[in-house]
Design a protein around this nucleic acid. Structure first.
Length: 934
RNA sequence: GGGGAAUUAGCUCAGAUGGGAGAGCACCUGCUUUGCAAGCAGGGGGUCAACGGUUCGAUCCCGUUAUUCUCCA
């Protein structure tokens, strides 16, 4: 079938033009070295009626075709890795296909197959403001890529690219429509393209075709452009930007092929890499827009169904009716995809890091929904639509749709709360602005509403407008710029890709881990010794620490949360020569032991390796307990809980899992009970080694799918739980003895952490708790432990009764004191004064007396003093008419407080002071009289 | 990673230049009444997030920490 758009559009077939000289000059000026003036002319030939008809492919077909092509050329199809980076703190999100390949390119892991291909979901948020306003900015996008880790290089990369693009059974693009850019100095690449069949006039030299991220691997690249014809353009034909690579909509960059061949050293030089790599990236959305003849990426089958669903939810708005609404439709479609995938991969909305990205995307979508007249929660309804579009390559989205929609829905509700509080703050601000007689809301105020309370400036402008006020947009922008500058200055520059640790990458010796069945290996041959980053033949005490590899080892290397084993290395003469302090996986998979050398280690000699068995046994118990806990959590809380991290140490285990909301104490008890039930049931723990498919059929739960090779170990605890796991486990659950949860806390929105102990540590924990209870029982004099709560309750009642009795008694005493204290009235300067030292408990009592005084007002002024435990307290109160006359209690007390070596103050009608000199009380009282005389 | 804010009764929130911690709802008791959030009277419930500092005195000011919200990267 032929795409109808193409059939009717005859202009396409007659389109042709020469690029003007001006456009070429513009190209030269963009490069850093304008002196390189190899005049590169290119043109589009007249193809007339011979032009090829575009294949009609869906996005699923395009994706599959790409992967199939490279699989046929010996590539392993890699699954689209989770958007949440595994073991990579430098990345917030997986932001490209190569991001998941970093571990291969930097040599920390050697891949099974050096040729790999993938369609990798990715998230980028640096240009979030442009999403919806341009033709192809997205937050979530897919990157098709083929990768060579030290295998094929320019020749194959170029020839295969051309075959995929133009081959009849593949993309079958018209070669006349394709343009290739090359780095001018990279004559090899140009030669390969010519050899593959690209016409010379379709090859453009571009100075900026050099991929360089600073220190690390770098190299020239080739970009491939598709000419969609002038009628797709947004600039005039003679515009200086109208060339492949310029700022235009006509020449669409669809593929970038990086020839990674140099190491950019810290000194700023470029050294050839020992292993040259290929890394390519083709934007799926872009190439689909070519196939589907879409003006922007949004009019493809990847986005249109979401837009149509949004139309249904809106109050009658239609896509492509006006530009403003279109932007909103596009933003919603884009963000719906991104948040659906991000949440599906285990991220959750929160106030920092990637969780905050999700929150922001959801909020932007909601605001744009409001612009389309959608005022209730709606975004969650788009989750199944996204799932349906992507199900061929990402079936998991549809499977988790309910959970994802639930998370989004609750976040939509939350945002409404934010908007409500923001609105009431805005009303205050508007009122204040009006009261000050201003016609415009301060930019800083609008920014504060946005910055601190999350109230969007668009809404501020709108509501202020309703009240007849403008908003100082310039002021707002300048505040925003200050904020940006602050953040930029504080940014740390973490390296995004390291250089290969060549030494370890080159060690290919074979080492076998046998610790699943034995904890001691005799006659283990020492294959490699590394001291100070150099391979050596022997090491002794002088080399404090060394790294060693044996042909066989019982030492477990840290992985999957389980910590490394420790133990000893003994030579043939029976002398301990080294202690194993840490074990990690080397790039080629060997267990690399870090040892403290105490004797002599010689390459080629044999040693007896012994794992610290007691420690190992504790680790095994905690690891099996982790599996039981994981399964119990899923059984009790629901299948949405997924492991978010785990640590298995000898003395405890730590387990992080995703869970939306709180875990009730009843649920926690159920989980704990369920784990212990499995222990008491004495279930055998079985481990089998098999291939992935069989394991999946067994129902095994994979935690990080990409970490597993062809052969996987599957650990099952009866029918209760089956998981992929390369770690060590007990052989029967009864070895765990007892399982006890020590704590349950939150470690961020949506992630909870449980810490637990088993066996001896569980017993110790319970013992410690019991001993605390026993101590408490002794303290409250409870004859039996079970009496403790009752005793405490009774004591609390007693305390309460005593307190209340005491209060009553004190009030009575105060009243008695008052009766006599208020008798002694003096008149000073026409004002009546009561100045008395009383014998009460403290300031509280003085206040009570003042309250009494206030009821009866026997005098105009009251000054009370009391002494307690070396401290003196003063209180002054004034009758209301005295306050009106301008006499302030605070002034009086400030005048007399120095007499008791203190200071004080208070309100006009009442003030208090404290001091450290009770002997000064009479002096203070006397001074009160003098004060009144003035 | 960097900024701005919040944390007060079971819940929702007031509060004061640093000097007696409050309301509404909920809860308990009694009375009245039995029709849609019933009424009236009385009562219980607080380490004002935690710790440290300044001060005669801190729920309030300053600092640290925790949690939550929010903006930027």
């Amino acid at each position: 079938m032929i795409n109808t758009c193409f059939k009717t559009n005859t202009r396409l077939s007659v389109m042709s033009e020469w690029l003007t000289t001006t456009s070429l000059q513009a190209k030269w000026y963009r490069g850093p070295w304008p002196s390189l003036q190899a005049a590169v002319l290119f043109f589009v030939s007249v193809t007339g009626d011979e032009r090829k008809v575009m294949k009609e492919l869906t996005s699923s077909q395009v994706r599959q075709m790409y992967l199939d092509f490279f699989e046929q050329h010996g590539h392993k199809i890699m699954p689209s890795a989770s958007l949440v980076p595994v073991d990579d703190p430098t990345l917030l999100w997986i932001n490209s296909g190569v991001a998941t390949m970093k571990k291969y390119f930097d040599g920390s892991v050697v891949p099974d197959n050096p040729r790999m291909t993938s369609s990798q979901k990715s998230i980028r948020t640096n240009d979030i403001e442009n999403v919806g306003r341009t033709a192809r900015h997205h937050t979530l996008f897919e990157m098709l890529g083929n990768f060579s880790v030290g295998d094929y290089f320019k020749h194959d990369a170029v020839h295969w690219a051309w075959e995929l693009l133009t081959g009849e059974q593949w993309f079958d693009f018209d070669p006349e429509k394709l343009y290739i850019t090359v780095y001018p100095k990279d004559t090899d690449a140009k030669a390969e393209w010519l050899d593959a069949g690209v016409k010379e006039d379709h090859i453009v030299e571009a100075e900026d075709n050099f991929w360089d991220i600073g220190q690390g691997p770098s190299g020239p690249d080739s970009e491939i452009f598709y000419d969609r014809g002038q009628e797709m353009n947004n600039v005039a034909e003679d515009d200086p930007e109208n060339y492949p690579g310029g700022e235009n909509e006509r020449y669409l960059e669809i593929w970038n092929i990086v020839f990674s061949q140099f190491n950019h050293t810290p000194e700023g030089t470029y050294e050839p890499l020992p292993h040259k790599n290929i890394d390519t990236g083709m934007g799926l959305e872009r190439v689909v827009s070519v196939f589907q003849h879409a003006r922007t990426n949004f009019e493809t089958d990847l986005f249109l169904p979401i837009i149509r669903a949004t139309e249904q939810l809106s109050d009658g708005k239609k896509y492509e009716a006006n530009k403003t609404d279109d932007v909103s439709f596009k933003i919603i479609a884009d963000h719906a995809r991104a948040v659906t995938f991000a949440i599906g991969d285990g991220a959750l909305p929160s106030n920092e890091g990637r969780g905050y990205v999700i929150r922001r995307l959801i909020r932007r979508a909601i605001l744009n929904g409001k612009k389309l007249g959608i005022n209730e929660a709606f975004l969650y309804k788009l989750v199944p639509v996204v799932g349906e579009i992507m199900k061929s390559h990402y079936p998991a989205v549809l499977e988790q749709a309910d959970y994802i929609a639930g998370v989004i829905h609750s976040e939509e509700d939350r945002f409404n709360v934010t908007l409500d509080t923001g609105l009431s703050l805005l009303n205050d601000t508007i009122a204040a602005t009006k009261a000050a007689g201003k016609t415009q809301l301060d930019g800083a105020e609008a920014f504060k509403l946005f910055d601190t309370y999350g109230f969007p400036v668009e809404l501020t402008t709108e509501y202020a407008g309703d009240e007849g006020l403008g908003v100082d947009q310039e002021g707002f922008k300048s505040e925003m710029e200050k904020q940006r500058a602050r953040a930029r200055n504080a940014r740390s520059s973490a390296k995004s890709m390291g250089v290969q640790r060549a030494l370890l990458t080159d060690i290919k010796s074979v080492s076998k881990y046998v610790g699943y069945s034995q904890l001691t290996v005799e006659n283990a041959k020492l294959l490699d010794i590394i001291v100070d980053e150099k391979l050596v033949d022997q090491a002794d005490e002088n080399a404090d620490s060394a790294e060693v590899i044996f042909d066989m080892t019982p030492f477990y290397a840290e992985m999957g949360g389980q910590v490394a084993d420790t133990g000893s290395i003994v030579d043939e003469a029976g002398h301990q020569v080294a202690k194993v302090t840490d074990v990690q996986h080397a790039p080629n998979g060997q267990n690399l032991h870090t040892v403290k050398v105490t004797g002599k280690l010689v390459k080629g000699a044999t040693y007896t390796l012994t794992v610290d068995a007691a420690r190992h046994s504790k680790i095994e118990k905690n690891h099996t307990a982790t599996h039981l806990l994981d399964q119990s959590l899923r059984n009790v809380l629901g299948t949405h809980t997924a492991q978010a991290g785990s640590l298995v140490e000898p003395h405890y285990l730590r387990f992080d899992f995703t869970h939306f909301g709180q875990v009730t104490s009843e649920d926690l008890h159920k989980v704990e009970q369920m784990v212990n039930d499995q222990i008491f049931a004495e279930i055998p723990v079985k481990t089998v080694e098999t291939d992935i498919e069989t394991a999946k059929k067994m129902g095994a739960i994979a935690m990080f799918s990409e970490k597993y090779g062809k052969r996987v170990r599957v650990v099952s605890v009866g029918d209760f739980n089956t998981e992929f796991c390369g770690g060590d486990h007990v052989s029967n659950t009864n070895e765990l003895g007892l399982f006890k949860i020590v704590s349950e806390t939150g470690v961020g929105a949506g992630v909870r952490r449980i810490e637990a102990v088993t066996a001896g540590d569980a017993f110790k924990f319970l013992n410690d708790e019991e001993s605390l209870l026993s101590q408490t029982a002794a303290l409250v004099k409870a004859p039996q432990l079970k009496e403790v709560p009752h005793r405490v309750e009774a004591l609390q009642g007693e305390v309460k009764q005593l307190e209340s009795d005491q209060r009553a008694l004190q009030a009575k005493m105060a009243a008695q004191q008052a009766a006599s204290a208020f008798d002694n009235i003096e008149t000073v300067n026409g004002t009546t004064l009561i100045a008395q030292q009383v014998n009460v408990a403290g300031m509280g009592q003085l206040r009570q007396l003042a309250d009494d005084w206030k009821q009866k007002l026997p005098s105009d002024v009251l000054v009370l003093a009391t002494a307690n435990e070396g401290k003196a307290s003063l209180l002054v109160a004034m009758a209301p008419d005295q306050v009106k006359a301008g006499h302030k209690a605070g002034d009086l007390i400030k005048a007399i407080a120095p007499a008791i070596n203190g200071g004080g103050g208070g309100r006009p009608d009442m003030a208090q002071a404290g001091g450290k000199n009770p002997d000064g009380i009479s002096e203070a009282l006397a001074q009160a009289k003098t004060w009144l005389e003035k």
